[in-house]
Design a binder for these strands. Structure first.
Lengths: 386, 386
DNA sequence: TTGAAAGCGTTACCAG
DNA sequence: CTGGTAACGCTTTCAA
């Protein structure tokens, strides 16, 4: 056993009362030893040297065959292939990567922070893009520090990086750009020269939502957005969402009512209540939060306000999540899976030599569901509300 | 540019109408060349040889320092450390892994199939376990074939594997066991000798749910479960859920009413309707499905049946999802994140030399929420229902 | 079209 | 405690 094994004394914080659950059965494991080194060796027994020997050719030739190089005689290729099949050879990716200087892997830096919207779907989308291109996919969840990012780039574990939770001025972006390490963003900076990204068009999305509500006759439309410090720090969605909202309100001659709150149910409920205390005549709310928007529903329920009869609600959210709400939540559709997929696709294209910079800013799509209606005052003219 | 780059002609199926979104800006990229090889080289400029030279020691000594080996003089260690800092050295993980014969990485095999419950949270949990132990985390999403699994094991990309969607007899399990490749399961087989797992106790969970409902006075309690072919194929949750249900019903003298349906809203809605056509006197339903259980809500709504007054509903679902339902969905809590975390933790413990086999089967916890009540007939005696 | 040999950047063994 | 050196398994010149 190596020294590193015994010494990296990682301690695991037990979640819940798992200690009680565990029925641990002591005993020996499957036949072959589980020592690290021995494991690695036993697993990857047959190498290209073995193939070469068995096929009566050199390792170079085997390597060429493996990589479909043109300069190998058809007869030779077939013989080598046959031996490969027969011996069940499969390449040692680690060695390939070291020798080739490429990893055929991409990494998604997925921040812990509570900022994000619809986070998980990004992962699956990006992973799918990787697997579609026969790339391996790394997921790194811990929020990354400057030295860690440096280490990641030099580690050669990945050929490129997908960045999320982008700020208008983002140190990660500056750094990667400076050292010339390939990356793409889900989100975008203030200046995106030479960097590919896919981002939600929050300004446009909010504009659509506000306009739609205004057309229905709503006059007091509030925005539930991120806390002030997040805005100050230049978090893209926070800045673009709030600014877009303010601008649209100005354009339409509506009051801008902004309620900052962090992305937890407790905070959102409190913000909602405060909002209604101050603005009892509020008839619509737009939430930049994701599934936590359920807290808005509950807060309204708690005040015996009905959706959409008394208050209309719109959020930025995925279809799958929006449909779990009752009434189903009208939304600026957030196609997180597709965003992840596109980001992965762009990055890999770049790694494969494409030199076009892609800026993808899909036109936001407002999906109307039953959480939106004309305000009550108008309805009263035509309809009877209990 | 390598041949592989130009030849692996991957085609990307465009999602949605992204072609229209794209505002592609052609032009050159950041300063440094984006060619693969040159990239790798420029990124990882300084090696331990450079450190050795600058510090006036051998590479072995640098390596020892790096790995915190005991056999290096304190003075030397400090000098080497200083040089490392100064030159900003960071190890080339690829090379480390090849030389060490270990990857310090784990992989989660995440099936595409639609069988799964609460899938995404598993990923984040497992990824967290990896990052807590300074392991890298691979996510592989494509459903894996036999040769692909072989390739993965031999690739040396990962030291161990987390398997999901386990069947009672699972070829992946047999294979990995046979070749002695380290792995753990989220789920379990019929025979789990020598294999660590964490699994939901579906029998117990269902038993709890049925008993609770029976105690409330429900007599006709249906189970919405997986399709027959999934059951036949021996998918763990399908088999254990259905069998556990049947057994509990027998024990309590209740009729077993089983409605198979695949995990889509359409199928579930149809199954619910069929169920109610045949059993108009049904007063409770237990769903083995996850967020798609919303279709049950909608189907009941469509028949003007109220939850929980007319029909009680219980599902296997995560807290976060259950709370989005209205009324909030009572559930056998599915702590998917914790399951992922525990699986990762167990696997890494094993890789680090622990030789205890862990079988974790947490006692299921029924979390009551407003989707459950006594059946109407009983309520009538005491309460007035509109 | 093929083979020999020099890496790729580390680790780990073996002398000293 | 330290240095030399052989791996690790593969890719990639360079000659033949």
């Amino acid at each position: 056993m190596r020294d590193a094994c015994s010494k990296c004394g990682v301690t695991f914080t037990p979640l819940l009362d798992i200690a009680f659950w565990t029925a641990t059965i002591f005993g020996s494991v499957t036949g072959s030893g589980f020592g690290h080194k021995s494991m690695a060796l036993s697993t990857s027994a047959v190498t290209i040297a073995d193939i070469a020997r068995a096929a009566g050719v050199s390792v170079s030739t085997v390597s060429r065959t493996l990589n479909n190089k043109p300069d190998v005689a058809e007869a030779t290729r077939q013989r080598v292939q046959a031996v490969i099949e027969e011996l069940g050879f499969t390449p040692h990716a680690q060695a390939q990567r070291l020798a080739a200087g490429r990893s055929r892997a991409i990494a998604l830096l997925f921040p812990d922070a509570q900022l994000s919207l619809m986070r998980e779907e990004f992962i699956l989308g990006a992973a799918k893009a990787a697997s579609d291109a026969s790339y391996t996919f790394y997921l790194m969840t811990s929020s990354i520090t400057r030295p860690q990012l440096t280490a990641l780039c030099r580690s050669a574990l990945t050929d490129g990086i997908i960045l999320m939770e982008i700020h208008l001025r983002d140190w990660r972006v500056s750094y990667l750009k400076r050292i010339g390490f390939p990356f793409v963003m889900i989100g975008r900076c203030a200046n995106n020269n030479g960097i590919s990204f896919i981002d939600m068009d929050f300004e446009q999305g909010i504009a659509q939502a506000v306009e739609h509500l205004a057309n229905l006759g709503h006059h007091k439309i509030a925005l539930l957005t991120f806390p002030d410090d997040v805005y100050q720090r230049g978090y893209g969605p926070a800045v673009r969402g709030r600014d877009g909202y303010a601008q649209t309100c100005r354009r339409l001659g509506l009051p801008a009512i902004i309620a900052p709150a962090s992305d937890t149910q407790a905070q959102l409920a409190e913000a909602t209540n405060r909002l209604l205390d101050r603005h009892p005549d509020l008839t619509a709310m737009i939430s930049m939060h994701g599934d936590t928007t359920i807290a808005v529903y509950r807060a309204l329920e708690g005040r015996s306000l009905r959706i959409p009869e008394d208050v209309s609600v719109i959020a930025f959210i995925t279809r799958r999540t929006a449909e779990l709400f009752t009434p189903p939540l009208a939304a600026i559709d957030f196609p997180a899976y597709d965003f992840g997929y596109q980001a992965g696709r762009m990055l890999i294209a770049r790694l494969q030599g494409a030199n076009a910079v892609e800026h993808i800013l899909p036109p936001p799509k407002l999906i109307l569901r039953q959480s939106v209606a004309a305000p009550r005052t108008l309805l009263r003219n035509g309809l009877t509300i209990s």
